[in-house]
Each structure stands twice: as C-alpha cells, then as structure tokens.
C-alpha cells in the first residue's frame, strides 16, 4: 500500500510537471504528499533521531559532495537552477527521503530485513523516477538511491540523506 502510494504520487508529479507553469506546484505538492507517507511512523524508526546531529549534518554535506562530484569535476559552465525551483527542489528532496529511505525503508526492513530494505527502496526509488528521467539517467538515479540507502542502513540516519539530497538538487 505504501509502495503504491509513493509510486503513484511520484508518477503523477512527474506527469504534472510536464505542464508549462506547473513544475513548481507539482514539486511542492508532491513533496508534501511524500512526507505524508511517514504518517504514524516514530521519528526514530525513520532515522530522524536527534542524537549525534552535528555528525549527521557533516555526514550529509559529505554525502552531497559525493553526489555532486561527477558534475563538479566535469562542468565548466555551471547549470543554474532557476530560483523559483530551488525551494520546491528542497521540499521534494525532503519528501522523497522521508518516503523512500524513511517510511518505505522501515516497512521493508520489518518485512525482510536489511537486504530487502536496501534493494526494495532503491528499486522503488528508481521506478519512481522512470517517468521523469530519460533512460540514460536511470543507472545514476539507481546508484544514488543505493548510496543513500546504504547510508541509511549503516548509520541508521536519514538526516544525512536529506541534507545531501537537498544540496544536490539545489546545486543542479
């Protein structure tokens, strides 16, 4: 049920974003809807505890550096995200992390443990981007999902992935 909700929301958002002028509303509403996927889950089960918060934030910045490294190393004219999209990109980043690496990860872990949580959340994340991303981008999307899921598993932390995802989205 959770998986279906998240996927339908992401696909709807991707389709809505193709309408001229609807990109920002689609991102904002989609991001908010994704956050709702975590309704009823304790913050700690989502990886949102406040212990070691400083380390989590530093870790998030480091994780963002990894996400941005390929782009930073090759680009000579930095693509600039239009200002109106920046806030929306942050909102959808939070929503996606809470939904995929938060609620969905926790639910899958309850079902089949860590392997199911990592592989399942990565597959769902990749499938969710199938409509919004050209096929050439999907391996990179999947690899990013795997990296974020491994962080979530190893450190039991979602703050780092949220920070990294938000930085990566706004930087690109």
């Amino acid at each position: 049920m959770l998986l279906a909700y998240v996927l339908l929301l992401e696909w709807t958002r991707a389709l809505a974003a193709t309408i001229p002028g609807a990109v920002v509303p689609a991102l904002l509403l989609g991001g908010a809807g994704l956050v709702l996927a975590a309704w009823g889950w304790p913050a700690e089960r989502l990886g949102l505890g406040t212990s070691r918060l400083g380390l989590r934030l530093v870790g998030g910045i480091a994780l963002a550096a990894v996400l941005l490294l390929p782009a930073a190393a090759r680009v000579s004219a930095v693509p600039i995200l239009p200002g109106a999209l920046a806030i929306a990109a942050v909102v959808v980043s939070i929503g996606e992390e809470v939904a995929f690496r938060g609620a969905l990860f926790a639910a899958l872990e309850d079902i089949g443990g860590a392997p199911v949580a990592v592989s399942g959340s990565t597959l769902a994340w990749t499938a969710a981007h199938a409509l919004s991303h050209p096929a050439e981008f999907l391996p990179a999307v999947a690899a990013a999902g795997l990296l974020l899921a491994m962080w979530r598993l190893v450190f039991r932390d979602l703050v780092g992935p949220i920070v990294a995802h938000a930085i990566a989205d706004t930087a690109l």
């Binding site: 991102l27 390929p70 782009a71 990179a140 690899a143 990013a144 795997l146 990296l147």
Partner: peptide, 21 residues
C-alpha cells in the same frame, strides 16, 4: 556504493539530477 554512484553518474552529463525533470 559511492564508487558505483560516481561511475554511473559520470556516464551522463552533468551527473545526478533529481527533484525536477
């Protein structure tokens, strides 16, 4: 996982994209 990501993202310019199409 980080190495796998960097290799995968290197194959598409400019790299990882998300949040918008």
């Amino acid at each position: 996982a980080a190495i796998a990501y960097i290799i995968a993202a290197w194959s598409v310019a400019p790299g990882f994209y998300d949040g918008f199409s």
